[in-house]
Simulated assay, not measured.
Amino acid sequence: MEFRGAFTALVTPFSGGEVDEDRYRALIEWQIEQGIHGLVPCGTTGESATLSHAEHKRVIRICVEQVKGRIPVLAGAGSNNTREAVDLTREAKDAGADGALLITPYYNKPTQHGLVEHFAAIAAEVALPFVVYNVPSRTSVNVLPETLVKIKKRVPQVVGVKEATGNLTQISDIIEYCGPDFAVLSGDDFTVLPTLAVGGMGVISVVSNIVPGMMAGMCNAFFAGDLPKARELHYRMAPLCRGMFLETNPVPAKTALGWMGRLGFETRLPMVEMLPANQDKLRAILAAAGLV
């Protein structure tokens, strides 16, 4: 299974404090209709940190069931507890996911050697392709390019990385050190096109929750060699990307989807509604893009 192109880090719709399965299935179906290349349930954008284990497993199963093999499903299954990550990864495999997105352990602040051992331990228990999720802004740990080389050699199941540093030097180093077949996926919507330009394979995106066709279209244009079209879409999405981070993800994305009629806005504490001033800014951005 190749992880290439635009993957949406799906929000998890809630209603009355519970997972809204009907809205979730409808959102997945719309994403596929719009041409998205893959889906990521239970990532940061899916509020995985506030899902119970039972909910986490159910959300992945719903996604796999609804997709029906039409596009890849890369299931969020990581944890700062290695044993917990093994359990979630096993469940993702049992549900039929095509791969697991495994965040680096957060809060614990492991050493680089500890990171290698963490992924090796998961691989020893579960045979499934893994994509490492490197997001130092949330975990306080940066997987260095040299460490990814060690992980790749030790754990052949690790086929790529979601690189959310926004650091193009680091991204270039990873591609240089790990080779062109290692799937470097941008985890930063602002730098998708530059990442593709240096050899990246795609993106795991927040903004594609609201414009899946546009993000997929940019990747398609780039892969087809149509750089002017890819550049045009990059700049069309730039204000939307800023809008998605006016406050902490996924609050702006859920707010936008609510205004677009895709779901009812509901998050779980400690995530709360956007400040009114930021709502005004977001609505203006969406209106300019013709989304509301």
Rank of each mutant, 00 (worst) to 15 (best):
M1T: 14
G5E: 01
T12F: 07
P13V: 02
P13W: 06
F14A: 08
S15Q: 13
E18R: 15
E21R: 12
D22K: 15
Y24L: 15
Y24N: 11
A26T: 05
I36G: 00
G43I: 12
G43C: 15
T45P: 00
T45R: 04
G46K: 05
A49I: 13
K57H: 12
R58I: 03
R61S: 15
I62D: 12
V64P: 07
V67H: 00
K68D: 13
I71A: 06
A75E: 01
G76T: 06
A77I: 06
N81C: 14
T89L: 04
R90L: 11
E91V: 12
A95C: 02
Y106N: 02
Y106V: 07
N108S: 09
H113S: 15
E117Y: 05
V126S: 13
A127Q: 15
V131S: 12
V132K: 00
V135T: 07
S137P: 09
T139F: 12
S140M: 15
N142F: 15
E146D: 12
K150S: 09
K150H: 00
K152A: 15
G166F: 11
I174A: 03
E176N: 01
E176V: 07
E176G: 00
Y177A: 10
P180W: 06
A183E: 12
V184H: 04
L185V: 04
L185G: 05
D189G: 06
L193S: 05
L196K: 07
A197C: 14
A197R: 07
A197Y: 08
S205W: 01
P212V: 03
G213C: 02
G213L: 01
A216G: 09
A216R: 00
M218W: 02
M218Q: 09
D226H: 04
D226T: 04
D226N: 07
E232Y: 13
R236V: 02
A238G: 05
G243D: 10
F245L: 01
F245S: 01
T255L: 03
T255M: 05
L257Y: 10
R268D: 06
R268Q: 10
P270G: 03
M274D: 00
L275M: 11
P276C: 08
N278G: 04
D280N: 15
K281D: 09
L282N: 08
R283E: 14
I285L: 05
L286W: 07
A287R: 13
L291M: 02
